[in-house]
Simulated assay, not measured.
Amino acid sequence: MKNLTVFTPTFNRKHLLPRLYESLIKQTDTNFIWMVIDDGSSDGTEALIKTYNAENIIEIKYYWKKNQGMHSAHNWAYEKIETLWNTCIDSDDMMAPNAVENICKNLQSVEIDHDFYAIVGLDADQEGNIIGTKFPPNVEKIKFNQIYLKYHLTGDKKIVCRTEVMKKLPPYPIYEGERLVPLDYKSLLADQFAFIKPVNEVWCIVEYQEDGSTRNMLKQYRRNPRGFAFSRISRINFGATFKEKFKNAIHLVSSSFFSKDFASLLKTRHSFLVLLAIPAGILLHIYIRSKTVKNC
């Protein structure tokens, strides 16, 4: 019985999927499911996945849906996944050759310990250089929000989540005309009752695309103000420090000016803090507007 689903949200990335597929079929342990959530592609992605299915090297599940953004694809994945554990590998990334084997070995130590909702490993670039910093060797459990705020680590990490927990948490909201809600929301909620086990092993090989959200963050702020406002509200509510809460309050103010939804300023547990952030939020809004163009 398979214990792990590797799911991939994709939108018109047919040209990148072969590289990811090669990394999956070359895993030292192929006892996993690859689930592809096609977010409305029109570039022949479905036909490509059919050819991979016909090769019958790994188990593949493919689902097509209308385009609503990566977070909506995550919602679909969590509805469809049946294995105990899951991880997301983006269409422009690859898995390290022994990633599945090492993930499954590490899962054994937290399988029945529900104090843990996830394990987390490292990302590396295509030359094998670790992205950012490793976890401190003496830390055996961690909260998602502590990775960057308490331990001051840098770089993206690869998280493997307990499916049961992800299914129980509320789905990411869908906003008409927007295509992005930051994906840290579920981890922030799970942080309230469980931990993550950190592992200093490389599980994911990344390459940031010119059209990816990481390289276009200011544009994303302007394109998806309600999605980012939702994320800022959760980060204000669950923030561990005043600095984190105030920073996100500034961003919330900026997003509210883009969306014209000023009621969002009153949806946090810290309304007075948000009011204090209004001047800085207006300045941030002006800065983002100056660095981007309307309908960017």
Results as ranks from 00 to 15, higher is better:
Leu4Arg: 00
Pro9Phe: 04
Thr10Val: 11
Asn12Ser: 04
Arg13Ile: 09
His15Arg: 13
Leu20Phe: 07
Leu20His: 06
Glu22Thr: 14
Thr28Ala: 10
Thr28Arg: 08
Ile33Ser: 03
Val36Asn: 03
Ile37Trp: 04
Asp39Asn: 15
Asp43Gln: 05
Asp43Lys: 00
Thr45Gly: 00
Lys50Ala: 15
Ile60Asn: 11
Tyr62Gly: 05
Lys65Leu: 04
Gln68Lys: 08
Met70Val: 14
His74Arg: 11
Leu84Arg: 14
Met95Lys: 08
Ala96Trp: 02
Pro97Val: 02
Pro97Asn: 05
Pro97Met: 07
Glu101Thr: 04
Ile103Pro: 01
Cys104Ile: 14
Gln108Ala: 13
Asp113Thr: 06
Asp115Trp: 00
Ala118Ile: 06
Ile119Leu: 03
Ile119His: 02
Gly121Ile: 01
Gly121His: 03
Asp125Ile: 05
Ile130Phe: 13
Gly132Ile: 12
Lys134Leu: 12
Pro137Phe: 08
Val139Ala: 06
Glu140Ala: 14
Phe144Asn: 02
Ile147Cys: 00
Ile147Asp: 00
Leu149Arg: 10
Tyr151Glu: 05
Leu153Asp: 01
Asp156Gly: 12
Lys158Cys: 05
Arg162Pro: 06
Thr163Gly: 13
Glu164Ser: 12
Pro171Met: 09
Tyr172Leu: 06
Glu178Met: 09
Tyr185Glu: 01
Leu188Tyr: 15
Ala190Tyr: 00
Phe195Trp: 15
Val199Ser: 03
Asn200Trp: 09
Trp203Thr: 07
Ile205Asn: 07
Glu207Met: 05
Tyr208Lys: 14
Tyr208Gln: 12
Glu210Cys: 07
Ser213Pro: 08
Asn216Trp: 11
Met217Tyr: 15
Gln220Ser: 11
Asn224Gly: 01
Phe228Gln: 02
Ser234Val: 08
Ser234Cys: 10
Phe238Gln: 13
Phe242Gly: 09
Glu244Trp: 04
Ile250Asp: 04
His251Asn: 15
Val253Glu: 00
Lys260Ser: 09
Phe262Cys: 08
Ala263His: 11
Leu275Arg: 09
Ile282Thr: 01
His285Arg: 03
Val293Ala: 12
Val293Met: 11
